[in-house]
């Protein structure tokens, strides 16, 4: 699956959450804490929608993610 994170294309495995995908890219300043929908530190703009909880959201083909 290909998704765009902060303007760059990445390959994400099946069943990968958006937060894990962002971590895999090593995006600067991204510091999610809990991985389970509690801390709200993972929020990102996904396909234009702001403040989405990235750890609760599976990646989908063609998704666009902004971490700030």
């Amino acid at each position: 699956m290909r998704i765009r994170i902060d303007g760059r294309e990445f390959e994400a495995p099946e069943q990968c959450s958006v937060a894990a995908a962002i971590l895999n890219t090593g995006a600067a300043g991204f510091a999610p804490l809990c991985g389970m929908g509690i801390c709200m530190q993972c929020r990102a703009t996904v396909d234009g929608a702001p403040l989405m909880q990235a750890c609760q959201l599976p990646c989908r083909e063609g998704m666009t993610v902004e971490t700030r």
Binding site: L23, A31, G35, C59
Partner: peptide
């Protein structure tokens, strides 16, 4: 830096 359970959850979801 993250939680321990968080590390587990992230690995299970593609980290």
């Amino acid at each position: 830096a993250m939680g321990a359970g968080a590390m587990q959850a992230f690995i299970k979801s593609g980290l």
